[in-house]
Structure formats: structure tokens, C-alpha cells
Design a protein around this nucleic acid. Structure first.
Lengths: 206, 206
DNA sequence: AAAACATGTGAGCTATTGCTCATAATAATC
DNA sequence: GATTATTATGAGCAATAGCTCACATGTTTT
């Protein structure tokens, strides 16, 4: 499996409805296959087969395997209802509610297909372009959260930058783990504990 | 790359010092190669080359590629200075110190080679036997921590089981992330924030 | 030093992968 | 209906992977 190409753009743009449908079938199949087999074992042939499309067709819309994963990730990011920083309530006494909204958002966003998410996040760092996309997005999010931490009256943390990174990562990754594993406790219990941890952390000592 | 074999045992046991040395050279090289290239791109030929050993020798001590990663993981677990539950101070007022010891333990344990750890944890679930080893170990740890959470007078959490899982995972995975990424803040800052989060969480509301 | 055992070697087999390309089928345009 | 543009096909190529095996080289035992 040679890495061959660096491009992420398709080699031909769909001009007919038929083509657009094929493209979508491929992406849907890819999501399925990647989630089930992981990135390495999710072969392009398997994806094509699952999409009921010839391998040739697949390579008319995606220049290489990486591009398929990249497209799925972009779709996920775009579709994501990530709470925008402006909507956050900064008035005192609403901290726990805010955190809960944030956590619930993460949970909802991952219930689609946690296994695919896992693949995207853990096995994604393949192409430079893709890695940069993720990185830029992450930096932006961290800055937003950091801003909230600083401005909120109820929040007291030592290092807002580090705190922002830790919180974002912790909530996201714990949600992954919980949703991916066979659940032994109800989601509510998990949510409560995660919310409690973050809230108490932000509220500061004593 | 066919998965071929399920065994994790070597096909021949070393009986001379020379052999034991070869085996060790292979493992050291494997740690290097896996850390640098990841599991998929860390080919057995590359490992053999790096160890200055022929590919044939490699396959005399390891039945397949999986077995090499498995051995590295077992080594890591065995060598680990994981705090035993009995040594934990349960007297009041020592919570933060206990948590800090726990966090620092995680940090120390990972400073060897965070990239290898990443590979072992994220790409390991290949063979059934290996997965089970990890699982069993994790269950044991969780039970230990849960026990401490229940018995410590200063700790107040809603669901001890979930809390134990979350704490273990959060500390471990955050440490990974921090150690693997290019560090923008000193380790102390990171440690402080992580300790703060866990401590405040355990201490309970208010 | 010869026989028996242990260890080391690497060319190359088999399987699989990502991906190409000549060609066929279908739709749009004239 | 003929021409052209678009889309679909899949056999098969080049690269690479994990791994075997017939054999060479050491070490120990007799």
C-alpha cells in the first residue's frame, strides 16, 4: 500500500445526480467499513463492495484512501452542533448547567457511531492536510473554551490554557470510551459523574 | 499480511545466552520501530533490520507480529510501579497528596516512551489473548480504586464504580496526550491542573 | 573431533493492498 | 439518431506485507 498521492480533492466532480448518489453511497459504505474494521483493515475494495460500486468508480471521486477518511471527518466537523462560545451563559450560578449542556452535546454528537469516531481520531494522522484540519479546529476550540474559563465569574482554575485543553480532551475521550464499550451503567450515571468532575474542578478549591 | 497464527508463545525457547540476547535485541528494536512508525507501518522486516538480526531469527522467537507487541505490553505492565491499593493513606486530610502521587506515578510511568504506549493502547486490540490480558488488568485496577473511593473519609462521589473508571482512564489518557504532544507548558502546570481536577471531583460538591 | 543440538540466515513464496486504465454503459446535447 | 460528455466497470499491475524453509554457522556434549 503505497501512500502515492497527497491530494485530498476528487479527480472528477460529479455533474449528474447519479454521480452524486454514487459518491454518497461510497461515503456511507466507508463509514460502515471503517467503523467495523478500522482504518488499516478497511480496504478500498471492501468499501467499494459494500457500496455496490466498482473499485474504479471509487477512485473517480476520491484520489486515495486518505481522502475518504478526510471527507468523513470534515462532514463530522461540519455537521457537529458544537456549542458556539457566544451562546454560553456567563451569569453566576449557572455553571453546572453549562457544563452539563457541554457534556450532553458531546454524548449526542458521538452516539451516531462511536467506533467511526475512534478511527477518525486515533488513526487519522495519516496525511498532512488532514492532520492540519484537525489541528486548526482543535486550537480554535481550545481558545474559545479558554476565553470562557477566564470570563466566567464562578470559575477558578490555575492555568486556563491547560485547563481548557484538559477539559475538552477529557470530556471528548471519556465519552468515546463510554459509548464504545459495552455499557454496564446507564448513560445518566456516566453523565452525572463527568459533569460533577468538570464542574467541581472549575469551581475551584473549597 | 495474513493474521495466520493466534498463538502468542514463541516457537522455540532460548537455551543459550546468545539466544536470550537476540530475543532482547528484537524486543528493543520493536519498541523503537513501533514507537516511530506505529503498528501497521512497523514491519517485521524493519524490526529485524533495526535489531541487526535476520528476519528468520525473529520468527524463531515470536510466532507472529502480534506476539511482539503483546510481549512489549506484558513487559510494560509487569515493570509498572502501579501503586498497590494497600499502600494508600486513608487518613483524612491527605487526599490531595494521594491523588498527586497517583498522577505523578502515571507521568513517570509514561515518560519512557509515550509513543510506544500510544501504539500499545490504541492499536493493540488485535489478538483475543492480548485484549483479554489488558481487560483483566483493567478490571482489577478499577476494583482496587473503587475500593479506595468507598473507604476514604474525604471522598464523596455519586457512583464509585463509574468514578473509578473515569479517574483511571482520564489520568492515564491525559498523561499520554500531554507527553506525546509538543509541550507548550511545563509538566508541573499540567500535573497541578490534573491533580486539581481529580481532587476536587473526589472531595465532593461545595 | 565427531555427533548432536541450538541458533542464525535471507531468498523468496503467498497473500493482499492501493490504485490504474482500457473499455463499456448511460445520459445530455445537438 | 448521432455525437459527445459523463459515469461505471473490473481485470490486473506494482508494491509490500507477513512469514517459511532449506541451509549455514555456531555451541555443547560425548
Amino acid at each position: 500500500m503505497p501512500p502515492t498521492d497527497r491530494r485530498l480533492e476528487p479527480r472528477r466532480k460529479p455533474r449528474q445526480v447519479r454521480a452524486e448518489l454514487t459518491r454518497e453511497r461510497i461515503l456511507t459504505a466507508a463509514a460502515h467499513v471503517f467503523a467495523q474494521h478500522g482504518y488499516a483493515a478497511g480496504t478500498t475494495n471492501r468499501i467499494a463492495e459494500h457500496a455496490h460500486v466498482s473499485i474504479g468508480s471509487l477512485y473517480q471521486y476520491f484520489p486515495n484512501k486518505d481522502a475518504i477518511l478526510a471527507e468523513l471527518l470534515v462532514q463530522h466537523i461540519d455537521r457537529g452542533t458544537w456549542t458556539s462560545a457566544d451562546d454560553v451563559d456567563l451569569s453566576p450560578g449557572t455553571l453546572e448547567a453549562t457544563v452539563r449542556a457541554f457534556v450532553r452535546d458531546a454524548i449526542d454528537n458521538h452516539s451516531d457511531d462511536p467506533r467511526l469516531l475512534r478511527v477518525m481520531i486515533e488513526e487519522a494522522p495519516v496525511s498532512r492536510a488532514l492532520h492540519d484540519t484537525i489541528d486548526r479546529h482543535e486550537k480554535l476550540r481550545t481558545a474559545q473554551v479558554r476565553d470562557i474559563l477566564v470570563r466566567h465569574p464562578d470559575i477558578h482554575v490555575g492555568d486556563p490554557d491547560t485547563a481548557a485543553q484538559i477539559i475538552l480532551f477529557t470530556v471528548e475521550i471519556n465519552t468515546h470510551r463510554f459509548m464504545a464499550a459495552p455499557q454496564t451503567v446507564p448513560v445518566e450515571t456516566f453523565e452525572n459523574e463527568l459533569v460533577a468532575m468538570v464542574t467541581r474542578y472549575l469551581r475551584g478549591g473549597q
